[in-house]
């Protein structure tokens, strides 16, 4: 993979006692930055032209933003707020998205290969035809999310909550759903053999 990562040229936020990394081009993190509205627009433009790949965007609020086709490979998006964001065809390969809020995100055809999504909330999101191969989905909440025709090859959704989620025709080869909740999930027509050790599949279809 050899993806870019957020570890290079890291600057800490200039606010006293803040340990979060600063956003690109400014001296502070999202929590302490001034003039958020202008920065918000600037960062969306940068995301679209690919210059935020591998950048530190810790805790950023891009709720509802139009990030269709954005290049965010390897970006640090820990605790980012992306509720209702448009991420269709965006490239988030290798991005750190743990504890992020992706509720009701619209992400058809996006790439999350190798991404770290552990403990993120994907509930109610639309993720059909996404690439989640080799992604970290440990402990995610994905209640009612749509993952039809997704590639979940070698992903790690242990202890994730996929209650009432739709996984129709998804590739579940070597996906490890150990102790995941798949109650009333619909995996009709899925491909491959997932690991369902200790998973709760009550009322699920196709598993």
């Amino acid at each position: 993979m050899g993806l870019p990562t957020h570890h290079e040229r890291v600057r800490r936020c200039g606010a006293p006692q803040c340990t979060h990394p600063a956003l690109p081009g400014v001296p502070h993190c999202w929590e302490h930055v001034e003039n958020r509205e202008n920065l918000h627009e600037e960062l969306i433009t940068k995301a679209r032209d690919g210059s935020l790949a591998g950048q530190c965007l810790w805790g950023i609020d891009l709720s509802g933003a139009d990030l269709r086709g954005a290049d965010l490979r390897g970006a640090l998006l820990t605790e980012a707020k992306l509720q209702g964001a448009h991420l269709e065809r965006a490239n988030l390969s290798g991005a750190r998205l743990e504890r992020s809020d992706l509720r009701e995100a619209q992400a058809e055809g996006a790439t999350f290969a190798w991404a770290v999504l552990g403990l993120a909330d994907l509930s109610g999101g639309q993720f059909p035809r996404c690439d989640f191969s080799r992604s970290n989905l440990v402990g995610v909440r994905a209640v009612g999310g749509v993952f039809d025709e997704c590639n979940l090859y070698y992903s790690r959704p242990g202890k994730a909550d996929f209650t009432r989620a739709s996984l129709r025709e998804a590739n579940l080869t070597r996906a490890v759903f150990r102790r995941a909740i798949l109650r009333e999930a619909d995996a009709t027509g899925h491909g491959g053999q997932p690991n369902l050790d200790g998973a709760d599949t009550r009322g699920a279809r196709g598993l």
Binding site: L119, V138, G139
Partner: peptide, 14 residues
């Protein structure tokens, strides 16, 4: 397999 973090494993590793 995929990258992870201490926080994720502390919270949710079965």
């Amino acid at each position: 397999g995929p990258v992870t973090t201490v926080g994720i494993e502390r919270s949710s590793n079965p």
